[in-house]
Design a protein around this nucleic acid. Structure first.
Length: 906
RNA sequence: GGGCUCGUGGCGGAAUCGGUAUACGCAAGGGACUUAAAAUCCCUGGCCCAAAAGGCAUGUGAGUUCAAGUCUCACCGAGCCCACCA
């Protein structure tokens, strides 16, 4: 063997060889090779013009290591890769550089593929998918149509086909012409009962990208992509009814193995809160109550504070405001209108800029009636009430809500505290009386007397509860807002339940559950996305494009610029837009909106199962075999977007029986997340700071194996880690050392030292379990320990050579394969089986027994591993140094921890 | 403001159940080899002390325990996420 060469010819040589051998080919079910499966998945990248970022490979190498181990263990492994290639960056690039988005995508994909291949991943490249490929997006469009043709069945809590009301659903991909849709498509606007529906909503409009954004993409009122401040606009948009699945998206998390913080973030995002709707009848002008008039419906999680309501607040956008203006019941119209306009503009600006100062305007001429006690309270509009949450109206309880309190203080409104009937208040009172009596010299010893007191207490308590029910108990409170501890102390679930059922009896409210999650805005007014396969017919309404006409191809266009009025560039291509209605044959137009780029990524893991199927998105057989994904890794930034959307998408498909029942409603059995790779010094890598590390440079300098091992060694996988040029040098030295080890081994040096046996078996054990728990950094460190041991011993014992190379193989696949073949081994190390260990051999013959006196280490002695407890204690006591500390006294207690220590307590 | 995560050498970080704190790597100092350099190899390495013995050390302060980086409470600090969600 020549000089150590970690990078160079042999890496590309093996990459080529593996490719030709089809080493990473995942066998389809039904074939001989299809054994027990393992599906490892990494998020497919968006192929940007900038090329691969070092952050990508951290995730890919990790799952590559896991799947390589699984493959060696004899599993039939699916580890695929593809391209999530629709999206704005490509479109913007195309506009700027006057190229076709298609061409830019192809170029970027080729570059990404080249970069990934250099790293030596075990991807099954035969399964590569691309969301912009018509053969792929045909099925994205097809799925959209399935959602359009289905509705949410409240009685079963599952989505089902509209035609399901009359006829059973046919199999996947076989829903041909003439499938009778019994829910007419002629409804305009469409009933939102459908899973996919079009409706006019206020959308987040990015003036820079000229695109409508989902709520998830406009966090903090800022466009997720370009950082521009978003505006509110009214627009007809396609929506998908994810809110119908809110409960199941929370509930089913208990059936999967996700990192706790991922579960928590999803639950928080869905934002479930239990409470009640309460109706406040409205009184106009002089008339106190109006039967059959408007009632403002508010949402509250604290119906038990109803007696503390001193005013009602509507969001400035609330429909009643304009209605009341039109009806002429509002007396201060100018002031109200001015406030509405101001707050509409304010939504466009950074909200935190104005701090949390609360503003609002009283609606003169209107008041609301508290259904609990008939009290008339003023009505305000204020932008601290959000139009999009709950009912867009709240009952204000300044004594128990900080925001209401701040507002009430500013506008000098009443603050009324609600006292809850809490038993401990009475208990305290009872104790006081008892103490007082005792201090007067009349101790209560008589048990009868004690019972009597208890009885009185109960009576008084029950009477108090009654008065609360009648709405009598609430009285003005002059103090400031209670601190939160006091507030929570007084909170009572019973009181909430009681008041809610009372409201329901009176028909002025109902129990409800509210979610922060909004329906998914599915329309984008851009070119580079899947066209929504719908035809708009003046007489039939929204008509689905017949399935045999899919895909609806993106037409070639001259210019990709979106229009100023917010229409998609597709709208400018009249010959594409103009079509005939598939339903009535009359003149009609195509839908010009395209789908968000979350569409293609919501189901790509299904396509990988059977990527070349042209009759279905995947065969039932393939789905049954491969799904669910065993291990899915991706960034935390996708927890509330992609991860939630794809879980939801999978559930809809499963409900519609488009997926095999047996795979269950959850697509991913396990989801983990990697930490960011930071620049040297701990800052985020960014182009503007010029601290971006290019994987190409690293691989050219050090080779793929060094890059891979360093990626795994850099730190705990789920935590951020700063890139360190010196650190990678250390890894290079390590792999050089491995190489040299075999130069020695090659010279026929044989080691017969059983001292190596222990460390070898320990290493097999530790590395095996570390890969399972994704503790890659300690797995690499154990490989180093083992390598150092071999180096110190002067070589690798013959019987450990294969096992050692196998342990190395998932991390440094090229080096392991090269050495495997240099040593004359047949086949491929990557198919050679995972090494086993003998538990009894992980324990050495002797160990260092630590002896402590009062918790401090006083001596260490070498003893045989099978030493008995009594022997160990005796040896410990016999130690000279221990004797010194005992000072001839008898120890109080002696504790023996097997295989570790003896501790003597004085 | 709320939630989550975390504070261990000069640095990245180890440390199953509470049981030898600082594995592994980097950087540093010293030495060997070499005309020299690179590469490689060997030695040293938490702090106090000349050394030994001993003492002090896992953000700070208490507590539980024979024994605490690990458990409990309080405080200080950092990072991430959400943020007027009624």
């Amino acid at each position: 063997m020549s000089t150590p060469r970690i990078f160079g010819d042999y890496e590309s040589k093996w990459q080529k060889a593996w490719d030709e051998q089809g080493l990473y080919h995942a066998a389809q079910p039904g074939t001989i090779e299809a054994k027990e499966k393992f599906y490892g998945l990494v998020e497919f990248p968006f192929p940007s013009g900038a090329g691969l970022h070092v952050g990508h490979p951290r995730s890919y190498v990790a799952i590559d290591v896991v799947t390589r181990k699984k493959r060696m263990e004899g599993k039939n492994v699916l580890f695929p890769m593809g391209w999530d290639a629709f999206g704005l960056p490509t479109e913007n690039y195309a506009i700027k550089n006057h190229v076709k988005p298609q061409d830019a995508t192809t170029a970027n994909v080729n570059n990404f593929r080249r970069q990934l291949k250099m790293i030596g991943f075990g991807f099954d490249w035969g399964r590569e998918v691309n969301t912009t490929d018509p053969a792929y997006y045909k099925w994205t469009q097809w799925m959209f149509l399935q959602f359009f043709k289905s509705y949410f069945d409240e009685s079963t809590g599952r989505a089902r086909f509209v035609e399901d009301r009359e006829a059973p659903v046919k199999g996947r991909g076989e829903r041909g012409e003439g499938s009778g849709d019994t829910l007419p498509t002629t409804h305009y606007p469409l009933p939102s009962a459908r899973m996919a529906y079009k409706t006019t909503t206020t959308i987040n409009w990015c003036p820079s990208c000229k695109i409508g954004l989902a709520n998830e993409e406009a966090i903090g009122g800022v466009c997720e992509r370009c950082g521009s401040v978003v505006e509110k606009r009214e627009k007809a948009q396609w929506m998908i009814g994810i809110t119908k699945y809110a409960e199941r998206l929370i509930h089913d998390l208990s059936t999967v193995n996700y990192l706790e913080r991922i579960k928590k973030q999803q639950i928080d995002w869905i934002g479930k809160s239990e409470g009640a709707f309460i109706d406040f009848k409205v009184a106009y002008g002089q008339r106190l109550t109006v039967d059959g008039g408007d009632a403002v419906r508010v949402f509250t999680t604290r119906p038990d504070t109803l007696f503390g309501v001193t005013y009602v607040v509507l969001a400035p956008e609330h429909e009643f405001v304009s209605k009341w203006i039109a009806d002429g019941v509002i007396l201060n119209i100018d002031e109200v209108r001015a406030y509405q306009q101001a707050s509409a503009k304010k939504a466009d600006m950074d909200r935190t800029a104005e701090g949390k100062e609360k503003t609002g305007v009283k609606l003169e001429g209107v008041s609301a009636i508290n259904p609990a006690n008939g009290e008339e309270v003023p009505v305000f509009i204020a932008d601290y009430v959000l139009a999009g949450y709950g009912t867009g109206a709240v009952m204000a309880v300044p004594a128990h809500d900080e925001r209401d309190f701040a507002f009430a203080k500013k506008y000098e409104l009443n603050i009324v505290e609600v006292i809850k009937p809490k038993r401990d208040i009475f208990q305290a009172k009872y104790s006081l009386v008892k103490k007082e009596l005792e201090s007067l010299g009349t101790p209560i010893e008589n048990p009868e007397q004690e019972k009597d007191w208890q009885k009185k207490l109960d009576e008084e308590f029950n009477g108090f509860c009654k008065r609360v029910e009648l709405g009598e108990i609430c009285w003005p409170h002059e103090g400031s807002l209670m601190n939160s501890r006091e507030f929570n102390d007084r909170y009572s679930e019973d009181a909430v339940a009681e008041i809610t059922s009372w409201l329901e009896k009176k028909q002025s409210g109902e129990k409800t559950t509210n979610y922060k999650l909004r329906d998914w805005i599915f329309s984008r007014q851009r070119y580079w996305g899947e066209p929504i396969p719908i035809v708009i017919c003046p007489s039939c309404g929204y008509v689905p494009v017949p399935e045999e006409q899919l895909p609806v191809l993106l037409p070639d266009v001259e210019s990709y610029e979106p229009t100023e009025n917010g229409e998609s560039p597709l709208a400018k291509i009249r010959e594409w837009v103009e079509t005939t209605c598939p339903h009535c044959g009359g003149k009609a137009e195509r839908e010009t909106d395209t789908m968000p780029n979350w569409a293609g990524s919501s189901w790509y893991f299904m396509r990988y199962c059977d990527p070349h199927n042209d009759r279905a998105f995947a065969s039932e057989e393939a789905l049954k075999y491969w799904m669910p994904v065993n291990l899915y890794n991706g960034g935390m930034e996708h927890t509330t977007l992609h991860l939630l959307y794809s879980r939801f998408w999978h559930k809809m498909m499963w409900d519609l029986k488009l997926l095999p029942e047996s795979i269950g409603p959850e697509p991913y059995a396990s989801r983990v997340s990697h930490g960011l790779i930071l620049a040297q010094g701990g800052e985020k890598m960014s182009k503007s700071k010029g601290n971006v590390v290019n994987p190409d440079d690293v691989i050219n300098e050090y080779g793929a194996d060094v890059f891979r091992v360093y990626m795994m060694f850099i730190g705990p996988f789920d935590q951020p880690a700063p890139w360190d040029v010196k650190g990678i040098e250390g890894v290079k030295r390590f792999l050089d050392k491995v190489w040299r080890l075999f130069e020695i081994a090659d010279s026929e040096l044989r080691i017969a030292d059983s001292g190596l046996e222990t460390i070898y078996h320990q290493s097999v054990k530790k590395i095996s379990s570390d890969i399972e728990t994704l503790a890659f950094n300690t797995a690499v460190s154990q490989l180093m320990v083992l390598t150092n041991a071999f180096t110190d011993a002067g070589g690798v014992p013959e019987e450990m050579v294969e096992g050692y190379l196998k342990l190395l193989a998932p991390f440094a696949p090229h080096l392991a394969e090269e050495l495997w073949h240099t040593l004359g081994k047949g086949g491929s190390v990557h198919m050679s089986g995972w090494p086993t260990y003998d538990e009894t051999k992980t324990v050495s013959a002797s160990f260092e027994l630590v002896i402590q006196v009062n918790g401090k280490v006083r001596d260490r002695i070498q003893v045989p591993s099978d030493i008995s407890e009594d022997e160990a204690k005796a040896k410990a006591l016999a130690s000279e140094n221990v004797q010194k500390y005992l000072e001839g006294k008898e120890p109080k207690k002696i504790i023996y921890v097997k295989g570790k220590l003896v501790t003597i307590a004085m």
